[in-house]
């Protein structure tokens, strides 16, 4: 998918575990894992808001748009 989830990087920067985050935002660990591993198909605004509040960050810190063929373009440039 072209949307990359950088939750693990933000968690590392905040020195917070996924379990701690789950407790803070009230989302199950299973669903946070779905989000973290990039398997999620959609994210609710309410979830995003809770995550940003708990991690004190912006949505852009968590989500990033990476074009699907960016690796191919990079490889070709090299």
């Amino acid at each position: 998918m072209a949307i990359k989830v950088n939750l693990d990087r933000v968690l590392l920067e905040r020195r917070m575990s996924l379990t701690q985050l789950a407790d803070r935002v009230g989302i199950t660990l299973a669903n946070l894992s779905i989000l973290k591993t990039g398997k999620a198909k959609a994210v609710r605004f309410s979830t995003l808001e809770a995550l940003c509040r708990a991690l004190n960050c912006q949505p852009s810190d968590i989500l990033e748009y990476v074009p699907e063929d960016s690796d191919d373009i990079r490889d070709a440039a090299e």
């Binding site: 935002v25 009230g26 989302i27 199950t28 299973a30 669903n31 779905i34 609710r44 309410s46 979830t47 808001e49 809770a50």
Partner: peptide, 14 residues
């Protein structure tokens, strides 16, 4: 504002 804890349509957990 919707609290995700109350808005949890987390089908995997139902």
């Amino acid at each position: 504002m919707i609290n995700p804890a109350n808005d949890s349509f987390e089908s995997a957990d139902i």
